[in-house]
């Protein structure tokens, strides 16, 4: 009797542990093919039919459809270049370089990855509306309140994430060799 009880206990503990570790792995967004370059992170193969099981399970749960490398490449950043979390009470400078791409867009998101409400009601910037200097370099100021020049309006929530999407880019096939020096800088300016 006692040994049966112990067996049932072992089975229950095992099942619980298995479910919990599966849930934890999905919450932590475990993926096999993560490319990191400075503060930027990308999972270029996540869209494929052949993506790893953790990625596929996470996508099935969230309902996301990531960009396929044939269309473009998504990078996200949750920290600045020193590794400090991105917070909306600070201003940030996002500046060239940027990998060659036909178009790119920069979108501020909440720290949960959802679209955020910003001061100007905007949802980000595209490469077509950026003002550049004579050598083609650009500097974007990300701040909660309006700034002159290339202004990226930040959300009203305390923390945020940045999504950089490159479309029609040769970087798709070179994503794994991407280094921090090829992606935009993400420098904290002043904080209020």
């Amino acid at each position: 009797m006692l040994s049966l009880l112990k067996s049932i206990m072992a089975a229950l503990v095992g099942a619980g542990l298995g479910l919990w570790t599966a849930w934890a792995a999905l919450e932590r967004e475990t993926a096999f093919d993560v490319v990191r370059a400075g503060p930027w992170r990308s999972t270029p193969k996540a869209a494929f039919v052949t993506a790893d099981p953790y990625t596929r399970a996470a996508l099935a749960r969230s309902g996301q459809v990531p960009l396929s490398p044939g269309e473009g490449l998504t990078f996200t950043a949750e920290t600045d270049e020193t590794g400090a979390p991105l917070v909306t009470r600070c201003d940030y400078i996002i500046a060239s370089p940027i990998p060659a791409a036909r178009f790119w867009t920069l979108t501020p998101l909440t720290d949960k990855g959802a679209l955020a409400t910003t001061a100007n009601g905007g949802t980000g910037l595209t490469s077509a509306e950026i003002v550049r200097d004579s050598s083609g370099r650009f500097e974007i100021l990300a701040a909660r309140h309006a700034r002159p020049g290339n202004w990226l309006a930040l959300p009203s929530e305390p923390a945020f994430t940045l999504a950089l999407r490159l479309y029609d880019t040769p970087a798709s096939s070179l994503a794994s060799a991407m280094s921090a020096g090829q992606l935009p800088t993400l420098r904290k300016e002043r904080c209020s």
Partner: peptide, 22 residues
């Protein structure tokens, strides 16, 4: 033995959960 059994079950449940979710 029970501890080992629990760990093996945990591993199986983990793998099956991840594979079955999609």
């Amino acid at each position: 033995i029970h501890l080992l059994a629990a760990l093996i079950i945990a591993g199986l449940v983990h793998i099956v959960t991840i594979l079955i979710l999609p």
